[in-house]
Design a protein around this nucleic acid. Structure first.
Lengths: 195, 195
DNA sequence: TAATTATCTGAACATACGTTCGTTTAAAAG
DNA sequence: CTTTTAAACGAACGTATGTTCAGATAATTA
């Protein structure tokens, strides 16, 4: 056998990507073999190399796409908002975006150390850019007198850690809806920065 | 060559443990080989099996020890405190304990999926017990009217996620001392629960 | 229909893995 | 000093790894 019936790069390509995403999130990059990914796609291991130069690129592409989409989503937030509005928008966007992509988030946070140094630097740059966005909001709120925050750098890390933590327990269809979770977290964030 | 000069189980044993801790934290359980651990200890791979039945037990022991010590530390907190005092004690203990053990914390959060189902269940039980402790404090504060928290379960997860987040950036000897970090986080936690 | 291109197979490569074990040497016990 | 035990070596086991590639077949183009 060789080329199989109905085979198309437009179909197999995304399937490779999806399989890698699912398996990396489930078992971790290092614990997943190319043969496992191939089996999930329904193909032999060698065929994967039509869609990725190597395993590392598979991981990097997943993380880069995720971070780029996250930054793009943030760009779309209105920028004429007050500091408090901006913080609420950020909070709700973060919760919504992350809860919709549990696998991507898991990988983005867990597999950093499995990136090559060059790839790591690129992803880290994207992450820093995202964090800087929140820090800018906090500083604006401090300057305007809206927020009461002693250290904006730490507050940035604390808020992001708190928000990203939802992914450890939140599941669609659970006890609480996303809207309820958003409201509860926004209340906590709001209070934490003194609003 | 065979048994080497100065070899002692009382020396090599802890060194195996330390090497595994360091390497698992650095590269991840699945990415670290028994030969790497052996090299770090200064021994051949076969010698490791004088100290662990297998690689999985090495991971499990590290996590179990960590969680047990965490629970033991919490037991030593005074239990006649007010809800606010109890929450402050918990917050400071968590920050101190975790900042002193970055490698153990990293492993405890990242390598859960590399535990066998039986081992996972045990570690998860310990973690649940720790979280229940915080939830009890929050409920007590709600009942007494000290705290203003709409959902104690979520608040528990949010606070723990926020606090554990320090380990992603805090380093002894950095811009802020542990005491300063403790104060800043306690301020945020305090405000977040409405105190 | 014929020629070309895209896609996948299946075998192979060198290397690495966790683990076992017979043997050897050092330390401890008698 | 002799015997016993503890600790480590070093080779070997079978299996798995990421990756390459010639060959085969399907889809597409001419």
């Amino acid at each position: 056998m060789a080329r199989t019936q109905g085979s198309h790069s437009g179909i197999t390509g995304p399937r490779v990507r999806d399989a890698a995403l699912k398996l990396f999130a489930q078992h971790g990059y290092a614990a997943v073999s190319m043969r496992q990914i191939a089996r999930e796609v329904g193909v032999q291991a060698g065929a994967l190399y039509n869609y990725t130069p190597d395993k590392q690129s598979l991981l990097f592409d997943l993380m880069q796409t995720h971070m780029t989409e996250l930054l793009a989503a943030r760009e779309e937030l209105p920028d004429e908002a007050t500091p408090t509005e901006a913080l609420e928008n950020f909070t709700r966007l973060h919760l919504r975006f992350h809860s919709e992509r549990p696998d991507e988030v898991f990988i983005a946070y867990m597999e950093l150390r499995n990136l090559t140094p060059e790839n790591f630097a690129q992803i880290e740059e994207l992450r820093r850019s995202y964090e800087d966005g929140l820090e800018a909001i906090l500083r604006a709120g401090i300057d305007s007198g809206d927020f009461e925050v002693s250290d904006p750098k730490i507050a940035t890390m604390a808020v992001i850690a708190m928000l990203t933590g939802v992914n450890t327990w939140f599941r669609e269809g659970g006890r609480l809806s996303l809207a309820e979770v958003e409201q509860i977290y926004w209340d906590m964030v709001r209070k934490a920065v003194g609003v």
